[in-house]
């Protein structure tokens, strides 16, 4: 049984349909990256899976008793709130000093325990957030744009860390990114979302190729990979930028199970 799954999930904000019959499911130990442009409903999808967002259609199923570790998109802590990283780890569920130290060490920020949260850099904050999510042995990590605001080495380092955590603990990972083309190399699947599931496939790992070096340099140690979209439809102007793929775009891909071409947007099949 999958850990968490969405089947035909639709969400409306006012009159606008933000998510339209989106289906996806995660199995134990799997890493899935959801990419999509701004406003494509990525965060809404995560919120739906977490049970925060009310659905206008479809169903979300979580395995009963599923332990979720959640890393929110950003944490805007008011400067008036004094809080050390150690204290933050105990919210809302208290953890022991040993658990806190283990989680911080795992995330490479053992020395930050007594540092004030507002004094942390973007990358440090992400690691502390991840440390908090790793407490209490989660079965799935849900991360909302965890590398936003990080530079490329920072992003690669964070992805390597997640890869290690998955290797060591077998935790499943669902990660959202607005970067349409550069994804975590360890992703088992990449899902491109734009209100609906546009396409789905494996990342294109090219770390040995010269063009990878040209793109990412040597510092990333293969943590980043490219994702090549293979959309067989284009979106009407009302739906954002048109993306039509040329005839050379012929690698295989599969759509989400409920992806329906009977939707309202303009489809112009290319290739």
């Amino acid at each position: 049984m999958s850990l968490i799954s969405a089947s035909g999930v639709s969400v409306r904000f006012g009159g606008a349909e933000v998510l339209s019959r989106v289906s996806l499911s995660l199995s134990a130990g799997e890493i899935v990256t959801v990419v999509g442009p701004n406003g494509s409903g990525k965060s809404t999808l995560l919120r739906a899976l977490l049970g925060i967002q009310r659905l206008s259609g479809g169903k979300v199923a979580r395995r009963p008793g599923l332990r979720i570790g959640y890393v929110p998109q950003r944490l805007a802590i008011d400067r008036s709130l004094p809080m050390t990283a150690r204290r933050f780890l105990s919210l809302p569920r208290p953890c022991t000093d040993a658990q806190a130290a283990a989680a911080l060490t795992r995330c490479g920020v053992a020395d930050l325990a007594d540092r004030q949260m507002v004094a942390l850099s973007g990358g440090q904050l992400q690691r502390v957030l991840l440390a908090r999510a790793l407490l209490h042995a989660p079965e799935i990590l849900i991360l909302d744009e965890p590398t936003q605001g990080l530079d490329q080495p920072g992003e690669a380092g964070f992805y390597r860390l997640i890869e290690e955590v998955r290797r060591d603990t077998g935790v499943a990972v669902l990660l959202v990114s607005h970067d349409l083309h550069v994804v975590m190399a360890a992703s088992d699947r990449v899902i491109c979302l734009n209100g609906h599931v546009c396409c789905e496939g494996a990342p294109h790992v090219v770390s040995q190729a010269p063009e990878y070096r040209a793109l990412f340099g040597f510092g990333t140690q293969g943590a980043l990979a490219l994702y090549r979209h293979d959309h067989d439809h284009s979106h009407g102007p009302a739906d954002g930028p048109v993306h039509v793929h040329g005839p050379g775009c012929g690698h295989d891909h599969s759509h989400g199970p409920s992806h329906s071409h009977a939707q309202k947007e303009v489809h112009s099949h290319a290739g």
Binding site: G51, I68, A76, L81, L91, P92, P94
Partner: peptide, 15 residues
């Protein structure tokens, strides 16, 4: 604990 978590982030509290 709940008030502090909510004050930090409502999403974190929800989750």
């Amino acid at each position: 604990q709940a008030l502090l978590t909510t004050t930090l982030s409502e999403d974190l509290a929800h989750a």
